[in-house]
Design a protein around this nucleic acid. Structure first.
Length: 281
DNA sequence: ATCCGGACCTGGTCGC
DNA sequence: TGCGACCAGGTCCGGA
């Protein structure tokens, strides 16, 4: 499911319920997700207060007052749902857990936060105080950070013969892009996803940087994209899927003004890419 | 160093 | 209605 906009949407929904809140209770309902949960997860979390809820790439990080950080990734189908008396939105009874509710947190305010993940590609881990985490070690620039600019991306692309689609999916280059937003950004930038990353001119890279930021900004404003699994923390759907220009739109006319092309779907490294062969070069 | 394919796991959809 | 094949928003790993 979740690329940067979806994770950021979840973060924003969770933040008011977690930051400054004590975790009164934590429950791990199975020993593993993609990887084993830390054996002391419940012990470390119980009684800890979350001082900040941050995002890095597609990871959520909850800093704990007693030191250390809770690290979470939603994988493909993960959800973090906030429920509790008096909250807006539609809710299940938090006392009724479903098959895929794997980890549950209850805050001092009585709010329940459930990590639900049908496919179990998600992960939860602890970053110990003063330690680095291997999963975060090699991430590239955040698209919204000032250091993500034309020079940075041009340098990262230099000499790369792989298709630009693949280069943009590489989290060591740009952190947070996934299959949807790479297709959307390349269409906005007029770049063919099959083009070798190292063979894109500086001006077009400059435009691409802007389009990446724009499409992510638009998607966050829409609460992310809900194709099947994504839910905001409130349980609501995101609605950016209605604004897709190419993703999942095979054979549809290209939305660009004056373009007579039609959207094509191809497979690159085993994953779908959508683009307009007419205006993406 | 790069790149590709397979693996992880479940559920939804589509065609027969 | 049932069943198998195929597809899905991610990313780690091993081998070429």
């Amino acid at each position: 499911m979740p690329e940067l906009p979806e994770v950021e949407t979840v973060r924003r929904g969770l933040q008011p319920h977690l930051e400054g809140q004590r975790i009164a209770r934590a429950e791990a309902r199975r020993p593993d997700l993609r990887w084993p949960l830390p054996p002391d997860l419940v012990q470390v979390l119980t009684g800890a207060t979350v001082t900040a809820l941050r995002r890095r790439s597609k990871y959520l990080l909850a800093d704990l007052d007693r030191g250390g950080t809770l690290l979470m990734h939603l994988g493909m189908s993960g959800r973090l749902l906030v429920e509790g008396a008096g909250l807006a939105g539609f809710h299940r009874d938090p006392s009724i857990l479903s098959r895929h509710d794997h980890v549950v947190f209850v805050t001092g305010a009585g709010t329940t936060i459930t990590f639900n993940d049908a496919r179990r590609f998600g992960m939860i881990d602890l970053i110990r105080e003063g330690e680095a985490h291997p999963l975060l070690a090699h991430l590239g620039s955040e698209p919204f950070d000032p250091d993500f600019d034309t020079g940075y991306l041009a340098a990262a692309f230099t000499g790369r013969r792989a298709p630009v689609k693949q280069a943009l999916l590489d989290q060591r280059i740009v952190a947070g892009l996934g299959n949807i937003y790479v297709s959307e950004a390349l269409h906005r930038a007029g770049i063919d996803p099959r083009r070798a990353a190292g063979r894109i001119g500086e001006e077009r890279i400059a435009a691409l940087v802007g389009h990446i930021r724009d499409v992510l900004t638009d998607a966050i404003a829409a609460g992310g994209s809900s194709l099947r699994d994504h839910r905001q923390a409130t349980g609501e759907l995101g609605y950016f899927q209605h604004s897709f220009r190419v993703y999942n739109r095979e054979n549809a006319p290209c939305p660009n003004q004056g373009c007579t092309g039609h959207i094509r779907r191809i497979v690159q490294s085993g994953r779908s890419s959508f683009f307009c062969p007419r205006c993406q070069r």
